[in-house]
Simulated scan of single mutants.
Amino acid sequence: MRQAHRNFLLPLFLNPRLQLLFSDHLQALIDHMVGSTHKLSDSVSFFSKSTFKSMHRLVEEAGELEDLRMLFGPYVPENCLVHFPSPRDVGKSWFCMQLCLAIASAWPAFLGEPITLHGNTLYISTELGKEVIQRRLKKLFVQPPLPISASYKPMVYASRTNLIDDLPKIATMIEKLKPVLIVIDNLRLAFAGADTNNNKEITKLMFILLAICESSKATVIITDHFRKHTSGQLSDSDLQAGSGIKSDLADADFFLRKSAQDKHYRILKRGKSRHFEEGDTAKLLRFNPETFWFELVSDAVNEAEHVGIRSLTEKSEQKDMAVALRSQGKTLDQIAVILGKGKATIHRWLKPDGADPD
């Protein structure tokens, strides 16, 4: 006997449109339509139907579209799949929890980025257990930058189950909650057992995430990791671990990294986007060890001054950066750490006519 399909939601891509099935009795009707039925899991499927229209017609229909709303400025627009790869131990989970609270509490902005779409949020953790999440939330609720209200529901689902196996349960949650933001933390554990270096496997997994995103009309953030030995390189989609197909299929990506200038500093930078130009600068954040909240230090900094600058291979470029950092009041020790050079080398570069830089 065919297993009944569980509730899921609506379409996958803008073109083609994918509709997820609700029950077996719809299957016969859909099979007579032009399109294909695809299985996300053993009990959740969707139906795809293509669109064929002229560009003139599409432009006419576009007049009915509302302005794009923001969940975290251009970093996280509405109804998008956002890839969030970053190095380990930078605070990705803290950041995602805080963003969920900000959106559900109807804050007008977070870390200097406008929030123009508020609503319920769903944080799905396959990494942190219930007790760890409870302890973190307890700390976040003590001294938030703005009041944490009950305007909407910031829900948490912690599970060690593979996301594909958990899909029927998650589909039911999404249908009831109707979140504007879904965070899946993180990709490797959510799809445990999958070869994340295999393009074909990753394409299937990203297809599932796109289905969740478009069917629920929510933005989906999927956290991920950087590959090893990237600490001295400027942020880019190519630094992600595993297959680069993830960035190709995502609507946007952004990165969170530690700064070499202070152990509490973080660099937040946008990457690709289907809606906006890439950002030329990065945000400088500070992780407050007392409140456990991220704080905005500067809206626009040069990332190269914070990541070790080992990507600057030309000696002349390194010297110019040393001079720039010195003009900002940095000490020789600080510049040496930032550039990944010895203090004696920095001293020689900056020493004018035999004078002692310090």
Rank of each mutant, 00 (worst) to 15 (best):
D333W: 03
T196N: 14
L81Q: 02
P11G: 04
A171P: 02
K330V: 10
K283C: 00
T126A: 01
K53M: 13
D262R: 04
K53V: 15
R310T: 13
G308P: 05
I212Y: 04
T161I: 11
R266C: 08
I174G: 00
L239E: 12
L101T: 05
V34M: 13
N120S: 04
G193D: 09
H5S: 11
N199Q: 09
A355W: 10
K272N: 14
A4D: 13
I346R: 00
D224G: 00
H25G: 08
L68K: 08
R270C: 06
R17G: 03
N199L: 01
S149L: 15
T196P: 05
H264F: 12
C80E: 15
R17N: 07
M97Q: 12
M1K: 14
K315F: 03
L12R: 10
V180R: 01
F294W: 10
A322H: 06
K283S: 09
Q27G: 09
F72M: 15
K92L: 02
M155D: 13
C96G: 05
S41Y: 03
K228P: 03
V301W: 07
D253Q: 03
L210F: 06
F294H: 08
P108Q: 07
G91W: 01
K39T: 06
I174H: 06
E214F: 11
K139T: 06
R135T: 10
S23G: 15
G193P: 09
H5V: 11
M173A: 13
L58M: 05
P16W: 01
I212E: 00
P11T: 09
I202M: 15
E175S: 14
S316P: 01
R136T: 13
K315G: 02
R274E: 01
K319C: 00
E214M: 11
R188E: 10
D67W: 11
